[in-house]
Nucleic acid binder design. Structure first.
Lengths: 119, 119
DNA sequence: TCAATAGTTCGTAAGTAATCGAACAATACA
DNA sequence: TGTATTGTTCGATTACTTACGAACTATTGA
């Protein structure tokens, strides 16, 4: 079967990681894995086609942000936390802390009004 | 004269900042400002056309990463360190620590061989 | 074998980004 | 005023990204 390519730790590039994390959908996926542990692609509640999610997962994998493990018909995605922490200390943590999950009405594009700011 | 737009601190978006920092040229510019203080565009030794550098400077400015101040015929670029630290604590620091400046033979694209790794 | 599930690959379209050179604008200075 | 310096804007090109649906592959389980 198809071998999924994962870059070696030493080959993980800063610019590629930052790029992979610069998309709202991918940021959401990474945040979900961080908060709820490794999970399959179909567990993500994202408003995009399957094929598009595959594309995002590949982008994250090839940048070295996630690891993909085959389990039956599923692909289990996990964060390469150790590799990233070793290579770019503090980066993943600061990104995940900075990330604010979009609310149910907000979607994944540009953030909308935060609501009640009638101060 | 033309007013340069800088987003308010509260409007600085994580994904936009990560995107702005995901380009080797822009990463270099940010790193240079960090290491040597605010400076004009023409002080950066980058192998690209003026107009391209203008484009990168605008990308960084509109994402909220840098501030552009007009001084004579020059544009002085500075890092919005306080705004970024307040909005995304630790992010800029971890990126700048992770960044490795390309050597004189390496250029700004994909990193080349690191040389003597005959261990 | 058949059907369901989970993802991938392919072809395509629309949008965005990086790049350049030429022309332009603004300032500094002789 | 004229020239040099510094940077922007414009128009074009090339390449990449995101997105979709359709067709496909692989596994599970009846």
């Amino acid at each position: 079967m198809k071998q999924l390519h994962h870059p070696d730790r030493k080959d993980i590039q800063l610019a590629s990681v930052l790029y992979a994390l610069s998309d709202p959908i991918r940021l959401y996926v990474v945040s979900e894995i961080c908060n709820h542990g490794p999970q399959s692609c179909n567990s993500f509640k994202v408003p995009i086609a399957k094929s598009t999610l595959t594309h995002h997962a590949r982008t994250l994998r090839e940048a070295g942000v996630i690891h993909t493990r085959v389990q039956g018909t599923q692909r289990i995605l996990s964060l390469r936390t150790e590799d990233l922490d070793e290579r770019f200390p503090g980066l993943l943590d600061s990104v995940l802390h900075a990330y604010v999950r979009p609310g149910p009405d907000e979607g994944f594009g540009e953030p909308e009004e935060e609501g009640q700011e009638q101060g």
